[in-house]
Design a protein around this nucleic acid. Structure first.
Lengths: 116, 116
DNA sequence: AAATATATATAAGTATCTTATATATAAACA
DNA sequence: TGTTTATATATAAGATACTTATATATATTT
């Protein structure tokens, strides 16, 4: 599994990306999908997930809708109209950052001239 | 510039990668090279850099060599023989993690079947 | 003369995550 | 029948990796 330190700051934009692409999802579903997409590399723990979701809701970026399935409560989260542009911004930021990280693994760091 | 939160946990492996590829570097040089490689996206601050370098030295992963250039002191850091394998491990971990992150931006998250 | 670039260093504060704990139902297994 | 695993949400304590601010000092540029 990926070193946990590497995850810091990634989880929020990853969650927003999932909600943005998939539409409404509930917490448990999010953790499972992250695990599946990352082939087990990223484990999104509940202790990290729920505080993030609650904060996003509090900020008006996501909204909730409760549903009872098989006697169990499910809380679906989705991006609000108001939060849409901010979500897209965060997602784009992450994508840009990943591109930047990739440069560090290119030959000579993608630089034209080496700095002796 | 990249959202600062995204950097957490990345700086140590990035520094190790630079030292691994470039050989001995001094702190200021590292900050400048990170800025150049990332086209200004990543700003490695001194408050982050030096504690990392000192800790790496304390752990025996890097070693130092002082030199006086133009009346200014320079402290060159390089990976120790002992720290070499661990450095490679951290670097590989970061590279693997970047690959994992990329999947989140593939169509349908690189999954064969969608989970309706 | 002042501002910028070069060079290292530390301390206080913030934020994000991990780990542990709590609660509850359904399904699978032995 | 009883235990474990899967499903489902939630919070609190603790660790730690950063940011921001501050300190010191020389060389170069404006």
């Amino acid at each position: 599994m990926a070193s946990n330190d590497l995850l810091k700051g990634m989880l929020k934009p990853i969650i927003l990306k999932l909600l943005f692409e998939k539409g409404p999802m509930y917490g448990y579903e999010i953790t499972q999908l992250v695990k599946e997409i990352s082939a087990g590399e990223i484990e999104l723990t509940f202790g990290a997930l729920y505080p993030i979701l609650h904060k996003l809701e509090q900020e008006g970026i996501v909204q909730t809708e409760s549903e009872v399935i098989n006697n169990r409560n499910r809380i679906y989260y989705s991006i609000t109209p108001k939060g849409n542009s901010l979500a897209q911004e965060k997602i784009a930021e992450l994508e840009e950052f990943v591109k930047t990280l990739k440069i560090f693994f290119k030959p000579n760091f993608g630089l034209k001239f080496s700095h002796a």
